[in-house]
Nucleic acid binder design. Structure first.
Lengths: 249, 249
DNA sequence: CAACAACGTGCAGAAACGTGCACACTCTCA
DNA sequence: TGAGAGTGTGCACGTTTCTGCACGTTGTTG
C-alpha cells in the first residue's frame, strides 16, 4: 500500500469517525504503529489533523469538534441564517443540508411557520421538534463528523423527494474553485440534494468566502444565489461575476 | 477510548445537562473516578468548566434552560438504562426505540464499544455522535411528540434491517393490559421493529410498571424480558407470571 | 462532633511516544 | 548495469504520559 494512499485513508477515517486510534488502524492495515504515528505526525505538521495521546482528531477538532462548534455559531453564521429563513414561504417545501450554519438556519425558522422541511441531519431534525414545520428525515448510515445520514439508503431516499428550495452548506466558496467541501461522498450527496430542488441557495458566512477545500460540490453557475456576509466588501467582487450574490444587511 | 475524546465528552455532557457528577461518569465510562477528577481539574484550569465538590459545572452559568432540564432522566430510568447497556455485546447489532429511557440507554453505552445501532430517533442518533458505535438512521416523517421517524418510508426502511437485540420503550407495562403506548401508529412501528430483532427487551423504569395506555404494542409473552426497577417489590409479582423479569440491582 | 464522601498526592505498572539504527526498496546518474 | 543518495518501514531502547490504587487530608452532612 502506498504511503500517500494510506494518509488519505487516515484523513478519510478522521472525517467519517471524528477520531482515530493509532493501534486500531495499525492492526487493521497490518502495519506497525510506528508508521501510523509517523503519518499522523506529518499530517498534524501540515495542519490536517490534531495529534492526541493514542491517536488523532480532525484538524478543527482539538478542543472544538462538531459538538462544540454546534453550540457556538458565529455571529456571521447567525446573520446568514436569519436572512435565509426569511426566504421560506408558508406552505413551501425546503431541503436543509447538514452543518452548523444550516442548524442555525433551522433554529432561525419562526416557530409557528407551517412548511415542510426535508433534511438528512438528525441534529437539525431534533432542533425542529418545537417548530410547527413538518419534518421529513432522510435516513442512512450516519457520518459522525458532519452528523448527516449518507450512503446508498440515504441517496435512494433523497432521490424520491422534491422541493422548492435547497439551502446548501459548504466549506469553501471561491470564485475559481467554486463550491467545495472536504469529503467526496458528502459532495455527491449535496449535489444530489441540489438536483431535487428548484432553487439552491448557498449559505456564505464570512469564514467561507474565499476559502476552498478539496472536493467540488457544484460550480457557482449552478446555484440560484449565494447568501453572503463578507468580512470585506472586496470578497464579493469576483464572486458577483459568476453567480448572483445576496448581501446580508 | 482516547483521553482527548473523553474530555470532549465531559464538556458535551456539561452543556447538555448543566452539571456533571464524577462518580456517575466514572461508572458510565468504566474508568476510575481519579481519571475523571484529573480531567475536570485540567478542564477547569483551562477555564472550560468550574470545579465543585462531587463534580463540575459549566464555565458559563447560562447553560441549562428549562428545555434541557425537562429532558433530564430520572434516576430510575438511568438505572434501567445502565443495566440494559450491559446486555450489548461488542460487534452486535442493536435496534433502539425512541423515548427518554432509550436516550439514556444510548448515553450509557460505553463510548469505545464497537457495535451497530439502528434507530428511528434523530435525538438518539445525535447522542451517539461521539461513540465508536456505527449508527444506521431510519428516516421518514418526523413525529414531533415522541421525536421519531414514522410513516411508510420509515416502515419500509425498518422492514429491511435485522438485529440481535431490540430495546423497546413503552408508556405502560401492566400484567393484564400488556405493553401499551398512546398512539396506534407508534404501536405498529414498535411491533415492526420488534419483529426485526431476535430478542426484545422492554425498559421498565418505575413509573411505567403497573401503568397502561390505550394502544397495545405487544402482549407480555412476546418479549424476551422486562428490565424492571420497581418502586415496590409487589409491582413485579403478577408481571413475573407472564414474562421474564430482570430486576435491576 | 462523628461518619462519610470527595479530594489531592505519591507511586507503580502499562501504554504510547520519540529517537536512532538497520534493512529493503526506488530513483538517479555515471 | 551498478554505485550511491533518498525514502519508507520495522525494531529496540529510553522517556513521557496515562491510569488505578493506597493513604492521609479536607469538605459535607446530620
Amino acid at each position: 500500500m502506498l504511503a500517500a494512499t494510506r494518509r488519505n485513508l487516515l484523513l478519510e477515517r478522521l472525517r467519517a469517525d471524528g477520531r482515530l486510534v493509532a493501534k486500531d488502524l495499525a492492526r487493521e492495515l497490518g502495519i506497525s504503529e510506528d508508521s501510523i504515528r509517523r503519518d499522523l505526525r506529518d499530517l498534524a505538521a501540515a495542519g490536517l489533523c490534531t495529534r492526541v495521546y493514542g491517536g488523532a482528531l480532525p484538524a478543527s477538532a482539538a478542543s472544538s469538534d462538531y459538538a462544540t462548534r454546534r453550540s457556538v455559531a458565529t455571529d456571521s453564521k447567525r446573520r446568514v441564517a436569519a436572512h435565509a429563513s426569511s426566504l421560506i414561504r408558508p406552505g413551501s417545501t425546503v431541503i436543509l443540508d447538514g452543518g452548523t450554519t444550516t442548524l442555525e438556519l433551522a433554529r432561525a425558522i419562526p416557530t409557528g411557520l407551517e412548511c415542510e422541511i426535508i433534511t438528512h441531519s438528525p441534529t437539525i431534525a431534533a432542533a425542529l421538534l418545537d417548530h410547527a414545520a413538518s419534518v421529513y428525515l432522510i435516513g442512512g448510515t450516519l457520518y459522525k463528523h458532519s452528523a448527516v445520514a449518507m450512503g446508498a439508503a440515504a441517496a435512494e431516499m433523497a432521490q424520491r423527494v422534491s422541493a422548492e428550495l435547497f439551502f446548501l452548506g459548504v466549506v469553501g466558496i471561491h470564485h475559481e474553485a467554486g463550491l467545495t467541501t472536504g469529503d467526496p461522498e458528502e459532495a455527491a450527496m449535496k449535489r444530489l440534494l441540489a438536483s431535487r430542488a428548484a432553487e439552491t441557495f448557498v449559505l456564505g458566512s464570512s469564514e467561507k468566502l474565499g476559502a476552498a477545500a478539496r472536493h467540488v460540490v457544484l460550480p457557482l453557475a449552478d446555484v440560484t444565489a449565494v447568501i453572503a456576509d463578507p468580512a470585506h466588501d472586496t470578497d464579493l467582487e469576483e464572486l458577483g461575476r459568476r453567480t448572483r450574490v445576496i448581501r446580508v444587511p
